Computed example of a mutant assay.
Amino acid sequence: MATTHLSGTREEWLAARLDLLKAEKELTRRSDEVARQRQALPWVRIDKAYRFETEQGSASLADLFAGRSQLLVYHFMFGPDYKAGCPSCSSIADGFDGVAVHLANHDVTLLAVSRAPLAKLLEYRSRMGWTFPWASSHGSDFNFDFNVSFTDAQQREDSVEYNFQRGGHAMDATPSPPPVVEFAANCGTDALTYSRDRPGMSAFVLEDGVVYHTYSTYARGVDGVWGMYQWLDRAPKGRNETGVWWRRHDEYGRRQATS
């Protein structure tokens, strides 16, 4: 059976590929410029005394730098009432271990932070076979102050502000969209509870003992650190999605766990 996709000669492919190369180079240059804008953002001094629970014990935000001057935090969706981490965040985190060692040797610490108690996080990390550092912000304002966690009151009052705007995100829709319901059940909770935690990443710098917040991104802003999608965007059929298809890496080939 013949393909339904456009086909052609090697010469036609090369001509089209050279046109695409121009667009790719333009995108690369634009990406470089956006990176410069990102690094030129003003730094905001952090004076609040956040506390975290880590494998080494109670820690301050400065302690999380682990002796380095830069800190990248992935806001992993794992609320206190979850029984397992978010499948999407888990897919993103699958790439952390290989990257973290290189960042550590470039004066950058990479770790995840979630609101679930530390014991629950470490148990899940063991299940997933990961080794990257993971800190619990349970009982801290950290997740709320960096707009990745919200209270039930904020949900009821429709005052959730995520990705620098109020409303507009699928997790804020009523009724909850099927993918949100599915992922919530997969984490052992309901859609509203699941939606009180959101994905994102934040960057910090430590200078002369002072911590500054330099950058945060949310929602599709984390696509750039989701390795799976960088590869799919270069595959013949691209993302080719008709719904939620990915699973935790230990769930492929069997039915999704619901607890």
Rank of each mutant, 00 (worst) to 15 (best):
S140Q: 01
G221P: 08
L122G: 10
E241C: 12
H5S: 07
A235P: 03
A16L: 13
W246V: 00
G253Y: 14
W13M: 06
A62V: 00
H138L: 06
A257Y: 11
S137V: 03
K48Q: 09
G95L: 04
Y194L: 06
H213C: 03
A116N: 01
V160L: 12
W43V: 08
M128G: 09
F183S: 12
L103M: 14
P133F: 08
Q39A: 14
F78R: 01
A135P: 12
G167I: 01
G238S: 10
Q154C: 05
S126A: 11
G139V: 03
E123Y: 07
Y74V: 04
E157T: 02
Y162Q: 05
V180A: 12
N163P: 01
K120G: 03
M228N: 08
R239G: 00
E26V: 03
V108Q: 13
E24W: 15
V210M: 11
W130Q: 11
F78H: 07
R156E: 15
T131S: 11
A235K: 04
S176F: 13
E53V: 02
F204V: 10
V211W: 04
Q155A: 12
D19A: 02
V148E: 02
T189V: 04
W245E: 02
A173L: 14
Y252C: 05
Y252F: 12
V148F: 11
D145Y: 05
L122Y: 06
H75Y: 13
C89Y: 08
E182T: 02
H75E: 06
Q165V: 04
R254V: 11
Q256P: 08
S202L: 10
Y162V: 00
D63C: 05
T258F: 14
L27T: 00
M128T: 07
T189W: 10
D19R: 12
S195L: 06
L6D: 01
A40D: 10
G8V: 00
A119W: 03
E11N: 07
E161L: 11
L121G: 01
L110T: 01
G224N: 08
I46P: 08
Y229M: 11
C187G: 09
M171Q: 00
A185V: 03
R68C: 07
T109C: 06
L232T: 05
R234L: 13
R17Q: 15
A66K: 06
R125P: 04
Y124E: 09
R127F: 11
A203V: 13
S69P: 02
Q256M: 09
F132N: 00
E24P: 02
N143G: 07
A185N: 15
L20R: 10
A257L: 15
